[in-house]
Amino acid sequence: MSLALSSPAAQPSRTARLLRRLRGQHAFLVGAGLLVLIALLAVFAPLLAPHDPYLQNLAQRTIPPVWYAKGSWVHPLGTDQLGRDYLSRLLYGARISLLIGVSVVIIAGLIGTTMGLLAGYFGGRMDMAMTFIVTTRLSLPVILVALAVVAMVGGSLWIVILVLGLLKWDRFAVVMRSATQQVRSQDYVAAARAAGASTAHIVLREVLPNIAPQLIVVATLEAASAILLEAALSFLGLGVQPPLPSWGLMISEAKAYMFFSFWLIAIPGSALALLIFAINLTGDGLRDVISPDGRG
């Protein structure tokens, strides 16, 4: 008998161990904290927003935020070129950004992970076909295709989500493929097969949980990139259409006032940067927390 067999060490619960591992992950805590905060602000936007984000008031155009001499607490972040309350628009804009990030990742993640799992697990012709499709997809520049599609069928929130979701699965496919190849050569996959498990069982219950850390990292990266792409499309006027308060659209609408009302660009720009920063920190931290080799 080895020593560990006779040691009476009590078994801490899973949650306790997870919490212990989270302590010390400062970057992750900061990122996740920010992300949770932004998500809460977005969810409770209707309760938190001081004004209707769509209400125009031309008499009160481009009021500066409260920290300027002319600012007031009636509009803490000022108003935009149409007199709409900027804080309210910022809060509602967070909803759009998060909605896009999450929806695009779900669509792209489903497509890409399925392809990567199949190609990595079965190899051979399946792998060749998948590699060919990914190469084809990689030869299409996302922003150009998105522009063309939006120009053709017209821009709307759901069109943007769909287009980005159907274009951004390539990294999921590539990363999941190589992760699957690594896992499938492990003996526990052979043991599951020798136990009589079906292919579906092996792929979903043995392989998928073991490539989850990589999946999470890719998902966060892709969410951040989808949010930025939406901002870029909206900035070009081909994404979310006014009067919806998307952060990219807010920057776009403010560009004419850049030299006179700098905050109109700085505020949504900072919000965007902060959100991307939070997502990336969270993704990095999650990978460290979830991967089993680091646990213990």
């Binding site: 492990q186 003996d187 526990y188 052979a190 043991a191 599951a192 043995e206 949980p209 073991n210 989850a212 089993p292 080799d293």
Partner: peptide, 11 residues
């Protein structure tokens, strides 16, 4: 199997 480090699913 030979390698008990590879034959048990770590998750």
């Amino acid at each position: 199997f030979q390698d008990p480090y590879s034959s048990l699913n770590p998750r």
